[in-house]
């Protein structure tokens, strides 16, 4: 059950960014983590990839306008 959801056609690739990479992204867009879109700790995908609270998740979406587009979400516990 757990791993098979990752292969779904609606699910873009999620990856956990390391501290340095996250820092780079925040600097690039001049934002703090609080301002970024969120993803819940309870989210099925977060459970499978095993991210912790406060991690920055890079999501590589398939975009109908530009093939691929990166998106970032911060893991929050609510």
């Amino acid at each position: 059950m757990e791993e098979i959801i990752l292969k779904h056609r609606f699910l873009p690739k999620h990856e956990i960014l390391s501290e340095e990479e996250a820092e780079k992204i925040l600097k690039k867009y001049n934002v703090s983590k609080r301002q970024l879109p969120k993803i819940r700790l309870k989210d099925p995908v977060i459970k499978v990839i095993g991210a912790k609270e406060g991690d920055l998740i890079k999501i590589t979406r398939k975009s109908p306008t530009s093939k691929e587009s990166p998106y970032y979400r911060v893991v929050v516990d609510e």
Binding site: F10, L11, P12, H14, P44, V45
Partner: peptide, 12 residues
């Protein structure tokens, strides 16, 4: 969809 595949799949 959100409860089975998560928020990104729900957006899609």
């Amino acid at each position: 969809v959100a409860s089975v595949f998560g928020i990104e799949a729900a957006r899609e």
